[in-house]
Design a protein around this nucleic acid. Structure first.
Lengths: 127, 127
DNA sequence: CTGAATCCTCTAAGATACTG
DNA sequence: CAGTATCTTAGAGGATTCAG
């Protein structure tokens, strides 16, 4: 693996071997994963995956979350286009949150990552 | 889209609507997502998905990562059983990192989440 | 070559309290 | 009901140096 290096890092592959920090810094790939990695995001998405809910319903059903963090989580998901916020001009006001089409499209992958294979043990190295 | 299946498909957990903070605090579900949400984890996994690599190879190919963060990221992935660390007792020592079976099993879901639908626009919610 | 050890910064997250 | 406004804390992330 030595001499064939032409000195040009040009990627022939669509998903180049070389991953620049820039790509991972600004690309939505990192953004979305970071969002999903936030403390309360999985809980909110799991609940909204079943049915749309109002703010207080989420607050009641997610044990331990503060109003502040629920708001921030929902705002973040809304910014990413995963959740839709619908305001009903009633008195008192009620706001309903639901998954967007995009959010819903992420559910299969998301639930796949939520399986718990308990595969903590290191496997034997297979060369 | 496979599945006319609305609502949440999976979640092997039998219990339903109520999600306790305890579950999401200690369960591997949150742990894994948090791991994937870390800054450099996607980059490392993407590279290791192609082939096993040595420490310095990763350090060179992931632009902007520091040695400290590469070490921490790899240690974390190792703890979660997603990455296998193999030490070759050479001089100087060389260490090879590769995806474990568990780590490899996560790739489809992971790449699904890495698609960028550019669906930032809030869809017209029709109340 | 592959890390570990320090030190520092920035922000996600938590705890209250207040409001249209 | 559905938030916002502050304040504080814990830890992720970064820069640099040292070591087996």
């Amino acid at each position: 693996m030595s001499g064939t290096h032409t000195g040009v890092p040009s990627q022939a592959t669509p998903h180049a071997d070389r991953i620049t920090g820039d790509v991972y810094h600004s690309a939505p790939v990192t953004g979305l994963l970071r969002r999903l990695g936030e403390r309360w995001t999985p809980a909110v998405l799991c609940l909204l995956a079943r049915r749309a809910r109002r703010f207080n319903a989420l607050h009641r059903e997610i044990d331990g979350i503060s109003q502040r963090m629920l708001t921030r989580t929902l705002r973040g998901l809304e910014e990413d286009g995963l959740v839709v916020r619908t305001v009903f001009p009633t008195v008192p006001p009620s706001v309903e949150y639901s998954l967007s089409g995009h959010g819903r499209s992420l559910l299969p992958a998301l639930s796949a990552l939520m399986q718990r294979p308990d595969a903590r043990r290191a496997e034997t190295h297979t060369p």
